[in-house]
Design a protein around this nucleic acid. Structure first.
Lengths: 242, 242
DNA sequence: ATGGTTGCCTTACGACGTAAGGCTGATCGC
DNA sequence: GCGATCAGCCTTACGTCGTAAGGCAACCAT
């Protein structure tokens, strides 16, 4: 094919792409400078000619994920241009969520970073535009952004997910449940009630997708009330550029 | 005083307390086995006689924080026993928040842990009890727990807080704002609008306490609707032990 | 050819978590 | 009183991490 004399010269983008591939495949702890370099057929120190250290590498990962979210989200929203603000935001957030499901390491990384990734400003701008277009004041829109929290980035309480650990021992589980119902009666009752009419028990009794959407609707309903209570700024006039 | 012949024998609790003090004072990265041992007047390897490694140490920190939250939260709630579910939960969550403000490292640590700390079960039991007492079905209560998310543990989007970095250069900030309003008009407008009538501009224009409570009320309002829409299970009968 | 520039490698250092085993002083049976 | 037992602490050492400093070899325009 192409007469590539030596090997590809190893750019920042190539390094970042390899890093994402590595982390997707083997998880965050596998990402070390030496390992990443090895995957690129290169020595560790060579990475420092293209990346400002490991922290910079992680920043790059975050930026990449945020960019992916921004892209997917605007695609999703433009697909429903002209719709009301709820469905437009809903599509945005669900799109963001698909990105996070593709990169399970992303939420933890996002929340761990102390500096705010540059890309989120642009992303939030889009959300804000939708809210303003939906008749929200800047004040309420501002609070809405805070209320959405990590939902806007596509994750909410992936925190404390069981991980790939520990098999289920039916016998032990039953004994544990009995002990549970004595010490924590409401929790046990809830588990029992939810287990009883779970449509898909194989998925575990917490369907995070359902929870995600439930929270979404909860916030949307509350916001709609807040908007209407605060005096109408301007009604749903579908006449804004973006 | 007491005739303590040699030094205190260094227990798990003493180690954990020292670790919390260390992290409170100097932040998470300062917590290394060697440093913690030094603070205790001991050699690093001695810690392994009382702690199952660093991961175990972090688990201990998490458990301690959760325990502190559970204690403070139940205190807060019993202070308002007999009140309606909203104010009781509100007090719980605000109490949890004070704990998190005392330990700024806690949210990041909590969300980073992959296994769910044992103590939260008991804590969630209390929340659930309040919800059931408030007339919620187990189904809605379950979803409510998910909806609260990290709010129940006292944090919501402390994520991306600026940290102690970078001074504010007034001149550069103005230029940046101008560039901002061109590229991100809605965001700039929001910042301008919120800055304009900020009651306490010194705190930065995002008052996280206000945002926290706003989100709380948003969820409460939405949940109340959801409860009443789902058919009344049993009305606010203030007659439950806890 | 040649001198500079670019891109990668080699070597090395300090900090980390922790495995393996040695020393010491308190406790207890006799 | 005294030697055995043993928990509690220390010493040493290994492998892995991020990365600072400098060397070498291939490329380019001249």
């Amino acid at each position: 094919m192409g007469a590539r004399k030596r090997r590809e010269p190893l750019s920042r983008d190539r390094a970042l792409a390899a890093a994402i591939a590595l982390v997707d495949a083997e998880g965050m702890p596998a990402l070390t400078m030496r390992r990443l370099a090895a995957d690129l057929g290169v020595e560790a120190m060579s990475l420092y000619h293209h990346l400002p250290g490991k922290e910079g590498l992680l920043d790059g990962l975050v930026d990449a994920v945020v960019a992916e979210i921004a892209t997917v989200a605007t695609q999703a929203e433009t697909a429903a241009a002209g719709g009301d603000w709820r469905t437009r935001l809903r599509l945005r957030f669900l799109a963001a969520r698909t990105v996070m499901l593709r990169h399970p390491w992303a939420p933890a990384l996002l929340t761990a970073r102390s500096t705010i990734p540059a890309g989120v400003y642009g992303y939030y701008e889009g959300i804000l535009a939708t809210l303003i277009d939906g008749g929200f004041s800047y004040r309420i829109a501002h609070r809405a952004l805070h209320a959405f929290g990590s939902l806007a980035l596509g994750f909410a309480q992936e925190v404390f997910q069981p991980g790939a650990g520990e098999e289920v021992d039916a016998e032990a589980a039953e004994a544990e449940l009995a002990e549970l119902s004595a010490r924590l009666p409401h929790l046990a009752a809830m588990v029992a009630a939810e287990l009883h009419d779970a449509t898909d028990p194989t998925l575990g009794w917490c369907d995070s997708q359902t929870e995600f959407e439930f929270t979404l609707d909860l916030l949307f309903d509350g916001l709609e009330q807040a908007r209407d209570a605060a005096g109408p700024a301007h009604r749903e006039t579908p006449a804004l550029p973006l």
